[in-house]
């Protein structure tokens, strides 16, 4: 990879100062996506700002009814956290199945959602759970955060610091993995609260999205059988050598049914 200036600030302000107004600077958290990209010389920042020295960004805690996970919390720590397992087991389960164990030891929730890979797992949870993304500047609702493939509402130099998850009544995530990369070909996160059902789909489209027909059907009856007559429009979905869009559309429905069934079991 091309060389760069390496910075490891020990305060958030210092990190922001390094990133501010510098188009050639990139932040790095776990680096699970950025480093492979840099190795391929597809990204070549002049300055790399390592966020791993920032204090207080890897905590998991309850604030009232909200589960707050610091942006630098590794997938392995979310998966193993007794608090997450107790309060939001669907999220712990999702985290335990991201990539492989070595990826889970480096990758972070903040890095994952900031990158917004169309086949990443966390965005589905964040969107379905109607989480709030806390940044260095503001708080962004999940519905506003994920904009397009590899694109979020984050402004240049803005960093995610935490994600705030309201707790659902029941929730579950099911994914069908790409046999080669093991990323999601289709992943569906289903969350039911007292007032609504939200369903987010990753892997199938160019970016994570909410499946409104599925949500409507489940709002009427939160049961897998409620989805039997529903299908989703394949035309907006991706096609590649592993899965054409019709197949992805099918997988979304299958995973949705299985997620609902799993949510009912765990509920």
């Amino acid at each position: 990879m091309r060389s760069f200036n390496y910075h490891k600030p020990d305060t958030l302000d210092a990190a922001l100062a390094l990133l501010s107004g510098n188009d050639e600077a990139l932040p790095i958290a776990g680096g699970m996506t950025l480093l492979p990209t840099m190795k391929q010389r597809l990204a070549a920042p002049e300055d790399l700002v390592d966020l791993s020295g920032l204090p207080g960004l890897a905590d998991v805690a309850m604030e009232g009814d909200i589960l707050v996970i610091g942006a630098m919390t590794r997938h392995a720590d979310v998966a193993a956290s007794p608090l997450v397992k107790e309060k939001l087991p669907a999220l712990a389960n999702l985290a335990s199945r991201i990539g492989d164990q070595q990826v889970r030891h480096r990758g972070t929730i903040g890095g994952s959602i900031s990158n917004n890979d169309p086949a990443a797992d966390y965005p589905a949870a964040v969107l379905a759970l109607n989480a709030e993304i806390v940044t260095s500047k503001r708080t962004i609702a999940a519905d506003d955060f994920f904009v397009a493939m590899f694109e979020t509402a984050l402004e240049p130099g803005e960093l995610v610091t935490a994600i705030r998850f309201p707790l659902p009544e029941v929730a579950a995530y099911m994914k069908f993995a790409n046999p080669a990369s093991r990323y999601a070909l289709a992943g569906v996160f289903v969350a039911k609260t007292t007032s609504a059902v939200r369903v987010a789909v990753t892997g199938a489209g160019p970016s994570v999205f909410r499946a409104s027909d599925i949500e409507a059907a489940l709002a009427e009856s939160f049961d897998a059988t409620a989805l039997e007559r529903i299908s989703i429009d394949a035309s907006e979905l991706m096609s590649d050598i592993h899965a054409d869009n019709e197949y992805r559309a099918n997988l979304v429905m299958v995973m949705a049914r299985r997620a609902v069934a799993l949510a009912q079991q765990s509920g």
Binding site: P179, A180, S181, D240, I241, H242
Partner: peptide, 24 residues
């Protein structure tokens, strides 16, 4: 069950060009 070297029929690009796309 898994492995397939796939070329794009028009461009001649190898579509299964890494472990991300060639299923080991």
């Amino acid at each position: 069950l898994f492995e397939h070297g796939v070329y794009d029929p028009t461009s001649g690009q190898l579509l299964s060009g890494s472990f991300m796309d060639y299923c080991m």
